[in-house]
Every structure is written in C-alpha cells, then in structure tokens.
Amino acid sequence: MSEPPLRAAILPVTPLQQNCSLVWCTKTMRGAFVDPGGDLPKLRDAIARSGVTIEKILVTHGHIDHCGSAGIFAEELGVPIEGPHEEDRFWIARLDEDGRNYGVAGKPFEPDRWLVDGDQVSVGELIFDVRHCPGHTPGHIVFHHPDSKLAIVGDVLFQGSIGRTDFPRGNHQQLLDAIVGKLWPMGDDTSFIPGHGPMSTFGQERKTNPFVADTVLSG
C-alpha cells in the first residue's frame, strides 16, 4: 500500500490536555504544528522522532491552551504563524494574563497571516481549506484536508459534545450554525481531530451527539 499523502500525530499538551497536532506531507516530510499550546519539550521531541521539517504553525483560535506557546515556538523555529481569524485578536492580546490564571506559559503574538473563510494554507504539498466557525470564540477557524477526509476542528466540536459558549463573545447559535453549515457538508465519512479528547467522524456525531445530532436539531 502506498503512503497516504498526509500523516498526523496528536500530542496532548498543557494541564488542560489540549490536542496539539503535528501534521505533515509524507512526500516532502514538511509539516506544521496546529495549536502548540505548551509543553514545548514534548513538541521538540516529536520533531526529532518524526524527522519532519516544521515550516509553519497553524492556530485554530486564541485560547491559552491552544496558542499560549505559539509565538515562543515560532520564534524558536524561525517559522510563520497562520491563523486564527482576526476576530480572536483580543484573546491573543491577553495570553500572558490568561497564562498566569491557568498556570500555562502564554505570550501574545501577531500572526504572519490572519485567515478568513475560504482561505487555503499549504503544508508541504498538502492544501488545507479554511473555514471560519465562530461561536466558541468569534475568530475560530477549522482546517480541512478534503483528499484525506480529515478536519482539525479545535474546540468547535468534540466526540459527544460541542465547544463552550460562555466565554467573552461566545455565541451558542453561531456555534450550532457553524457545525451544521460548515462541518457537516465536509461529509459523514470525514474524521476530525478535536481540541480535547478522542477523534470521531461527522457522521458519528450526527447520529449520537446530544447537542447537534440530526434528531436533536430537527426536534
């Protein structure tokens, strides 16, 4: 069997056990970290073990467990940061304060590229589509690789749950609209890496998720 074009490793980081993803193009062995929230020694070790050359850092949203160390790591590796959407600028601006509150290293940063719905980002020869999915935070984005039927969804959707919307500028209806309008069209057979906990598929969540199953939303 030939090697799939994309490989991904999930590396839980910080006391909040956030799923940082190392994704790479198997053809070029060039990769990116998605949401390097902390525990940089663990992430450096993953680079060494995988033999991947990191070319950028991608960020789904501005919460401390997802991007507290993004600026620190990007500087260390000499790579750009892409994402999230600029509506999360206020979250990134308070990373040092949130870091103190959560006991996680946090440093504000300015992404090299803010992303909007419909943008694309490259990792090696892989092309990911960007979808703006507000609700958990106003600037939350999702990365989708259609050829691999894989999405990296941050805190929009989880196995059996959805993102919290009780944070500043969270919006429950926006979150539901993003899940149904942006994620479900990616296909029931698309697997997703959530910001916390185990992977699932959109089809599984449409059947069983107590918040967004088709039977719940049509009720």
Rank of each mutant, 00 (worst) to 15 (best):
P138A: 15
L115Y: 02
L150P: 02
E125V: 15
W114V: 08
C133N: 08
P134W: 09
D155Q: 06
V153R: 13
V142C: 09
P146H: 03
H145T: 11
K149P: 02
I152Y: 03
V130M: 01
T137F: 08
L126S: 08
G139K: 06
H136N: 14
H136D: 07
F128W: 08
L126Y: 10
R113D: 06
V116N: 05
R113M: 12
D129R: 13
V116P: 00
H136L: 01
D119A: 06
G154Y: 07
S148P: 15
G139V: 01
W114S: 10
H144N: 06
A151E: 07
G118Y: 05
V116W: 00
R131P: 00
V123M: 12
D119G: 12
I152F: 05
G118S: 13
V130D: 04
V142F: 12
T137L: 10
F128P: 11
D147M: 04
K149G: 10
W114E: 09
F143M: 10
F143H: 00
V142N: 14
G135L: 09
F143L: 11
G154W: 12
E125G: 07
L126N: 05
V121M: 14
L115V: 11
S122H: 15
G154A: 04
H144W: 05
L126Q: 15
R113T: 13
I141Y: 01
V123K: 09
V142M: 10
D117Q: 04
P146M: 11
D119K: 14
I152W: 02
T137V: 05
R131F: 11
R113Y: 08
L115T: 02
H144V: 14
V153G: 04
H140W: 09
P134C: 10
I152T: 09
G139P: 12
G124Y: 05
D155V: 00
G118V: 13
E125F: 11
D119H: 11
R113C: 10
G135A: 08
G118L: 03
K149V: 00
I152R: 09
D147G: 11
V123G: 01
K149A: 12
G139R: 08
H132A: 08
H132K: 14
G139E: 10
V142I: 14
W114K: 14
V123C: 14
D117W: 00
G154Q: 09
D147T: 12
V121E: 10
T137A: 12
F143W: 09
R131M: 09
C133R: 01
I127P: 04
I127Y: 03
K149C: 03
S148Q: 13
Q120D: 11
Q120W: 02
V142Q: 15
G154M: 14
L126H: 06
L115C: 11
G154F: 05
G118I: 10
S148I: 00
G124H: 13
I141P: 01
A151D: 12
H136K: 02
L115F: 15
W114Q: 13
I152K: 08
H132S: 15
G118E: 01
D147V: 02
C133L: 03
I152Q: 06
D117F: 00
